[in-house]
Design a protein around this nucleic acid. Sequence first.
RNA 1: GGCCCUAUCGUCUAACGGUUAGGACAUCGGCUUUUCAAGCCGGCAAUCCGGGUUCGAUUCCCGGUAGGGUCACCA
Length: 499
Amino acid sequence: MEENVKKIRVRFAPSPTGSIHIGNLRTALFAWLFARNNQGAFLVRVEDTDRKRLEEDSLKKIFEALKWVNLSVDEGVFLNENNEISQKGELGPYIQSERLEIYQKYIQELLENGKAYYCFCSEERLEEVHKKQQAEKQPLMYDKKCRDLDSEEVQTKIKNGEKYVIRMKIPENEIVKFNDKVFGKISVKTEIIDDQVLIKADGFPTYHFAVVVDDHLMEISHIFRGEDWIPSTPKHVLLYNFLGWEIPTFVHLPNVLGEDKKKLSKREGAVSVEDFRKKGYCPEALINFLALIGWNPKTEQEIFSLEELIKKFSIEGLNKAGGVFNYQKLNWFNKEYIKVMSEDLFEKNVLEFLSEDLKEKILGNSSAFKKILPVLKERIEKFEDISEMAKAGELEYYFSQPEYEIEKILWKEEKDLNQAKVHLEKIISSLEGVTSFKEEEIKTKIWDYATEQGRGSVLWPMRYALSGKDKSPDPFVLAEILGKEETIKRLQYAIGKIN
RNA sequence: GGCCCUAUCGUCUAACGGUUAGGACAUCGGCUUUUCAAGCCGGCAAUCCGGGUUCGAUUCCCGGUAGGGUCACCA
């Protein structure tokens, strides 16, 4: 009930170590939906405490991805009008590397209260300890060698310039309990909790320390994160207690899995938001699809706009079991979104996925292009398919006379090229009388003859003469797109090949 | 291996003790049809196993099994 009083504040806390993973996007989405649903605030904090894994343009990619899927940022780090990384809000800075003094302040407090201690163990020694534990099939934990060093000893070591980290002093024989909004009550004995490093040798805090400090200082009410954080949550709970802070509400989300039922990883192909963008998925489709993994709106509706998702979202609809990321279903969603896409947007997207020389041809015949668009719309599930169609030569014939072997112009098992020629000639003469060269009129002109002679025998050669392909839209659609002159030209070309 | 978590069609999921276990994707078949695509109609397909509790368990409890997560000076 305290949540009703307190303002809802959630955060998305990416690490700038690459482009944003689809699973992280989903976490951000749920947090964002929750904030919007409750008139709360959505903040973004950058967790860049791992100095070794920093990637130069990672932040840009992350924020471009957020912008692409339309998740707006209320506070913290964001991309401004000039596409520069900047910060807004009263509780900053929102980039952890700029908050080092803050962590210092609180680590001192823990040190003074005996909740943390200096540890001078070398990485080599730690490695040995771990090796031994592994051999004995013991859990891999710090052996607490430095836990009870006396303070004089500590001071002289520090004075001598010995490298150190600061560890958390996990209390003995206690049970840490916390309540998760999705997974319910979870409790863990302190015996199995490691004396976690809080401050690294380079002076930077570890994730575990920084999140607790920052989430508290930034007044985060609900922590949305992946379920893989559940095992380390007891450490965080302990830290909140050590510092005398109120514990926020945990909302751990079930994992997004690959086909192998393991956490979705690069092995599965596209996993970064960028990848999906490059393949020509619609951001709305991706969001819609993602929202329905691990959450359900309790209706049989499948297609939801962002606005509808905001309205419908609630933590109660969240699932515990991990969900497989199913590309086929994503494709279906994408197709649904393409169906209702505006002509202009569709055209713009198509152009983006065409090669330069094809684009040139199109610009030379833009009226044909306009007519092709609806045909393409019906046939693709993502815009990458346009490139594939182009490669397979399924676009070329709209703009230039296709080459083909004349025998293929015959329907099924038919052998008589002369008969086909007769049909084509008949079609030409019918077409010459068509005044407005529209699909329906072309059809009515030819239909009776085709029905009489056998539709396959007449229509297949016509279609083939126009496209030069086994598969294509129907001949009436093709004829309209090509126009009267070009259609007749191609039919005559076919007759010429027969002669 | 320790600890934690999870378990309904192949996949995403609905059914908060009583349903012929529902929907969607995929798949299969039919219709339409000159091919492809689209569209329409229909089919196949699930409660992990064993104990309880209960008049009655998909649903609650326990155990097993299976799967996953996690055990860093990475997040």
